[in-house]
């Protein structure tokens, strides 16, 4: 059974439809990659799933429990974690304080440092002074400490060096291998497909492709066609 099931979901911004009648599913232990050109509705989809913006219609369920009407905090407590784009660290808090904010009963800071040992030496540094890569590691580790069942990640590679992006991708793959359901929105299509299981391609708010990541990775012409239409 899928951890996250999204059925017939529509989301509007300023009363204009941005996501329309969308169906996706994310399995435990798997990464579902959402690709698409700018304006396809990928970020809006994640913001609707986590409750930052309301959904117009449709349903969102984690483990069969519908959450589409709940506030973001309730969705988080139901097991949904959202790593927003833009590396939303708490700037005035140190690395360790950022992590402690999301500590839940049963979670441990050691898990975060095990995933990203790079953060250990930076634990007393204010988050605003971390490098872009360290900030991205911090927000992923912070989300992990909420003990999520489903992790939504939006454009984690934006503005980062390729070596850092590769490091982050391998960490996300590790999280999925440990049983987490991951929905990854990404611009670096090839890199995302190389670690993903299932690929969705969105265009103008709709899913125009749903298939295996490896197959799509091996068909760059098909991917190009899906991005641009035609």
């Amino acid at each position: 059974m899928s951890k996250l099931v999204v059925s017939n979901l529509s989301i509007n911004r300023a009363e204009l439809p941005v996501v329309s009648s969308l169906d996706i599913a994310v399995e435990s232990g798997a990464i579902s990659v959402v690709l698409g050109s700018n304006g396809a509705g990928k970020t809006t989809l994640l913001e609707g799933l986590s409750g930052i913006i309301p959904v117009a219609s449709g349903s969102i369920a984690i483990d069969g429990r519908e959450i589409q009407k709940a506030r973001p905090g309730v969705r988080s407590r139901e097991g949904l974690a959202h790593v927003e784009q833009g590396r939303t660290v708490f700037r005035q808090l140190t690395t360790e304080e950022n992590l402690r904010v999301s500590l839940h009963s049963g979670s441990d800071l050691a898990e975060a440092y095990a995933l990203f040992p790079e953060l250990v030496q930076r634990r007393t540094v204010k988050a605003s002074l971390l490098s872009g890569g360290e900030q991205q590691m911090l927000v992923i580790a912070r989300a992990l400490l909420t003990r999520p069942k489903v992790l939504l990640i939006d454009e984690m590679s934006a503005g980062l060096a390729p070596v850092i992006v590769t490091r982050l991708m391998s960490a996300v793959r590790k999280l999925a291998d440990n049983g987490l359901a991951v929905l990854l929105v990404e611009q670096f299509a090839a890199l995302a497909l190389s670690i993903g299981n299932r690929a969705y391609v969105m265009r103008r708010g709709r899913v125009v492709h749903d298939g295996d990541c490896m197959k799509l990775l091996k068909s760059p012409d098909e991917l190009h066609r899906l991005y641009l239409g035609g």
Partner: peptide, 21 residues
Amino acid sequence: GLNLRALADRPMAAELLGIRV
């Protein structure tokens, strides 16, 4: 107090972590 400081810095990020904003 730590949660309040996080809330003051980024209210939505705090709420997404399950803080009872």
